[in-house]
């Protein structure tokens, strides 16, 4: 089942050749998601991925105070990744910007985040709505019951994968590279 991958990975920008199959897989994954807890390895991978999304994403210039101001990755609520994030945190600069990690308690507009990961936060939906029009790449994790982020982590056959909501990204003025879209198991357009 884990081998069911979308052909569009290889041909960037194409519509997935087997969207129905992917949806089926996704629904199974989502159903089974909250029941299982992440292994430490999966947590490490997710933490690394949070960093790695940054080079493939373009934010509007208005999202930054200046051309050299850092790129902020914010973790909202309870931190499910824990020290894994800090381990991965010795990241290289992205597009010339330093990368900083912030833990935030409350989500509100103008908080200065570029990537927002909502962990096992029961108020996920609420907090996402609060910044619905901000140029923030929201990342949710289905294994902790999260959904609705532009990127949503899923676990398939023990591997960490993700889905991308391209339309939501576009609404927020965020451009996602086709190379990243190609990695996603499902792209909502």
């Amino acid at each position: 089942m884990g081998e069911t991958r979308c052909a569009s990975r290889f041909v960037v920008g194409r519509i997935c050749a087997a969207p129905l199959a992917a949806l089926l897989v996704l629904s199974i994954a989502l159903q089974g998601g909250p029941a299982r807890a992440d292994t430490p390895r999966q947590r490490t991978i997710k933490a690394r991925y949070l960093y790695k999304f940054a080079p493939f994403v373009q934010w509007p210039a208005s999202a930054f105070e200046s051309p050299t101001s850092p790129l902020a990755i914010c973790i909202a609520g309870q931190d499910p990744l824990g020290p894994a994030l800090d381990e991965a945190g010795r990241s290289q600069p992205v597009n010339g910007r330093a990368v900083v990690v912030r833990h935030v308690d409350a989500v509100h507009p103008g908080m200065g985040c570029h990537i927002l990961f909502t962990g096992s936060d029961p108020t996920t939906e609420e907090s996402l709505r609060a910044i619905a029009h901000e140029p923030v790449l929201t990342v949710t994790d289905s294994s902790t019951g999260g959904s609705g982020g532009i990127i949503n982590f899923v676990t398939m056959a023990g591997r960490v994968r993700f889905t991308i909501d391209k339309n939501a990204a576009q609404e927020r003025g965020i451009t996602i590279s086709s190379k990243l879209l190609g990695r996603a198991v499902n792209v909502a357009r």
């Binding site: 790695k52 940054a54 080079p55 493939f56 600069p93 992205v94 010339g96 590279s177």
Partner: peptide, 8 residues
Amino acid sequence: VEQGGTKL
């Protein structure tokens, strides 16, 4: 192999 100035 790099993307956005980041060596991958």
